[in-house]
């Protein structure tokens, strides 16, 4: 079937099976390879994207279901060359190592920040909340500490602006 969807603000179309995975539509049909596959079973979060404003695992979303919907991938987080605050913070704080989970983490963390899910929380509480909200994104390199640091730095930056 032909699906029409909005990806990173642009209207896109793809001729795909409705049973295809959104992940493959993005990576293969639309050549947006920033979204990664880590497990194919909705477990690791490397393929996290926003679908109609909620963060989802693209490896377990059927393509047919994306017709007429809005998708934001890691490629859509920056505004031109200006990175999202959490992307900058991940670089500055050492929150990316091998980087394969990083696009998913960036998407999920950007969602958490943009939706203000941490607003008004004192630091310790905010750190605990980050650990809960990002628990669907597995990272094997960092021990998570520097990622939590980065999210809080980005929250501060966004909050100040």
């Amino acid at each position: 079937m032909k699906i029409e969807l909005e990806v990173n603000g642009q209207p896109r179309t793809a001729e795909v099976s409705p049973w295809a995975r959104l992940l493959d539509v993005l990576r293969e049909d639309l050549r947006l390879t920033g979204t990664k596959e880590g497990c194919g079973e909705g477990e690791c979060g490397a393929c996290s994207v926003l679908l109609d404003g909620e963060v989802v695992n693209a490896c377990i979303v059927a393509a047919g279901q994306c017709h007429g919907r809005r998708v934001v991938t890691v490629e859509g987080l920056a505004r031109g060359e200006v990175l999202h605050a959490v992307q900058r913070a991940l670089v500055a704080c050492g929150g990316a190592q091998c980087g394969i989970c990083t696009p998913g983490i960036a998407v999920c963390a950007a969602h958490v920040i943009d939706r203000k899910l941490l607003a008004g929380k004192p630091v310790a509480e905010a750190r605990a909340a980050v650990r809960e909200l990002l628990a669907g994104n597995i990272c094997r390199c960092t021990g998570y500490q520097l990622i939590v640091d980065a999210v809080l730095v980005a929250v501060d930056e966004v909050g100040d602006s």
Partner: peptide, 21 residues
């Protein structure tokens, strides 16, 4: 000093190309 990772921006933007990419 903690020079930001040379490959950091490529990784946070999804531009870094792994084999499957």
């Amino acid at each position: 000093t903690s020079l930001p990772r040379v490959d950091g921006v490529a990784k946070v933007t999804g531009r870094a190309r792994y084999l499957d990419d």
